[in-house]
Simulated assay, not measured.
Amino acid sequence: MMSRPMDSFIYQIVAVLIVWLMFPLPKHHHCMRLPQSGLHVFPVDTCPRNLSEVQAASRRLNCSGLQEFEYVYHCLPRFDLSHLVEFCYDDISGWTEPGNCMVLHTHTLNNHPCKYFTKDCPNKPYLIKEMYNYPTCIDIDRKEKCYRMDPSCTSITRKTTEEEPGGRGWIAAVVTPVVVLCLVVLIIIIIIHVVRRRRVSTSRQNTKRYETNRKESTPLILDSNKPTNTDKDELEGSGKSHDNHHGLKSYILLDWTEDDELFVTTEASKAVENKIEKQNFITVVGNSGSGKSSIIQHIALK
């Protein structure tokens, strides 16, 4: 029988797994200060791609400026192309010349030539704060520390290989949902198993409690001075009591039969069975929990 603390522990594990599968932990962006810079910059996975996203990010960082010379929101690569960072720039950012992307170097904004890009290098002057109009300037490979449109960036070759038919990118797309589905099925099986064991345990406890109360309420010695009931009502009551008693016997025999399905024959049970074939009365004795009742019930059902 499974104890309540063990049941509670299993329920907690199942709940944690369900929460973990359904609600992944959010990623927190920490503020970092660049060397020799007073700017507070925040690493991000992606930069805004349109004006509405820029405005939302600006409100999130409390950037108050609306013009190019005010406290304006920017999202650029770092000079080493290791991160994308967002920040409120408190100096004039201004315009940049065609053929250049912009990067953040300490506390200044510097040009980064992009004429060698395979495509989409800016071909006209633009405001630095509007670099979201040129996605190639904010599309970097952090691991390789290069622009993805740079022909020398190995991520281009890797991306092309992944997109080729027969590539291995589909394996992760197939395996991941299968693993998640297996975990969900396993969790459901554990829950069903625990609930069924609890129900069986509760049913057996109720049966044992009922038998204990019945034995305690049955007198060991019948009162011989009690008068015999002969009138019609008492006879009917006696008949009902007989029916109830018969139903109780059937319930007990059914419970014995269920327990007998798990019975394992032992030397002791064989010895008792051999002796009962030769004599009408035997006494089975032994320590508590040694299987006396199980042996008696098993032989009685035969």
Rank of each mutant, 00 (worst) to 15 (best):
residue 2 M to W: 01
residue 19 V to N: 08
residue 20 W to V: 07
residue 21 L to I: 10
residue 21 L to A: 09
residue 22 M to P: 00
residue 22 M to I: 04
residue 25 L to P: 00
residue 26 P to W: 11
residue 33 R to L: 10
residue 33 R to A: 03
residue 34 L to S: 02
residue 39 L to K: 03
residue 47 C to V: 07
residue 49 R to G: 10
residue 52 S to Q: 15
residue 57 A to K: 12
residue 59 R to S: 13
residue 60 R to H: 13
residue 66 L to M: 05
residue 68 E to A: 06
residue 73 Y to S: 03
residue 74 H to Y: 02
residue 78 R to W: 01
residue 80 D to H: 07
residue 89 Y to E: 02
residue 102 M to N: 10
residue 103 V to S: 11
residue 105 H to N: 13
residue 115 K to Y: 03
residue 123 N to L: 10
residue 124 K to W: 04
residue 136 T to L: 07
residue 139 D to Y: 10
residue 151 P to C: 06
residue 161 T to H: 12
residue 167 G to V: 01
residue 168 R to W: 05
residue 169 G to R: 14
residue 172 A to D: 14
residue 173 A to P: 00
residue 175 V to A: 15
residue 190 I to Q: 03
residue 192 I to A: 12
residue 200 V to Y: 03
residue 202 T to E: 11
residue 203 S to C: 06
residue 204 R to V: 09
residue 206 N to T: 13
residue 208 K to A: 08
residue 208 K to F: 07
residue 211 E to N: 08
residue 234 E to M: 09
residue 249 K to S: 04
residue 250 S to N: 12
residue 252 I to C: 05
residue 257 T to Y: 08
residue 258 E to Q: 15
residue 265 T to S: 13
residue 266 T to N: 02
residue 266 T to R: 06
residue 271 A to M: 07
residue 277 E to D: 08
residue 277 E to K: 15
residue 278 K to A: 06
residue 279 Q to D: 05
residue 281 F to P: 00
residue 281 F to V: 15
residue 287 N to W: 01
residue 288 S to V: 09
residue 297 Q to H: 09
residue 298 H to A: 07
